[in-house]
Nucleic acid binder design. Structure first.
Length: 241
DNA sequence: GCGACAG
DNA sequence: ATCTTGTCGC
């Protein structure tokens, strides 16, 4: 498999990344409701890292939004393009994720990213970044509240509470399973916060995390193991779905 | 000023 | 993110 190299001109330090982020931020579209829930395609995106070899494996899994069945999968392996800096996560994985998206033949529809969208120190998290670069609607679903404040949502599936940045609602804590820790949802590009939450609930009929994320997470780990030349694990495939 | 802080 | 087995429960 070919390794995606870091693009020429890619930000080399935090100052350069901040400048790019500031520019892309101006292209973010926030006044669209977004695609209808349960129609068309939804695409899960995720990455796995091997810091030792400086590699990142990305996966894009397209699901039928109505049935949640897999329509197409694609992966890409690349060089880690930036160190992990809170607030600059996108610069670490974007080139490889875009390569995986480019390898798809199906229409990706809504992009479901593993991380934040508008819930970001400068309102431009990974989901916004990928949305703007692809022109597609996108949402961010994160597993942790980052540095934002929130009150625990009610205990029932579907209960939500605002994620606050200095009093401004930048996302929502969404209970996708009764009695289980909520996920943290924010809008990316061309989607409303309410729409992002509705999509998230539609994508979590059974588990805490969206099917898109679970599918992509599983696939990128396999892609990384394969790139590293791993032997199959004793029991065959790691986790089931 | 220092620490915390998506993945 | 990643280091990591078994185990309790539906």
């Amino acid at each position: 498999m070919t390794i995606i190299e870091i693009p020429a001109g890619w930000p080399a330090d935090e100052a350069a990344a901040l400048a790019v982020q500031r520019e892309l931020r101006e292209r973010l579209v926030r006044d669209e409701e977004g695609p209808a829930v349960g129609e068309g395609h939804v695409t899960g995106l995720d990455v796995a890292y091997d810091d030792e070899r400086d590699l990142v494996a990305a996966a894009a899994v397209v699901l039928d939004a109505r049935t949640l069945e897999v329509v197409e999968e694609a992966t890409a392996v690349g060089r880690v393009s930036f160190p992990y800096v809170p607030g600059l996560l996108a610069f670490r994985e974007v080139p490889t994720v875009l390569a995986a998206l480019d390898a798809l033949t199906a229409d990706p529809g809504l992009l479901v990213c593993d991380g934040y969208g508008l819930a970001h120190p400068r309102r431009f998290g990974l989901a916004c970044h990928l949305g703007v670069l692809t022109g597609r609607p996108s949402v961010g679903v994160a597993k942790n509240p980052f540095a934002f404040a929130y009150e625990e949502p009610g205990p029932a599936r579907g209960d939500t509470s605002p994620l606050l940045a200095h009093g401004e609602e930048v996302g929502r804590a969404v209970r996708t399973r009764a009695g289980v820790k909520p996920v943290f949802v924010s809008a990316g590009h061309r989607v409303s916060l309410a729409g992002a939450c509705a999509h998230t609930l539609h994508l979590t009929p059974r588990y805490r995390l969206p099917e898109t994320t679970r599918r992509a997470d599983s696939l990128c780990r396999r892609a990384l193991a394969e790139a590293l030349g791993d032997r199959p694990s004793p029991s065959g495939t790691p986790d089931s779905l």
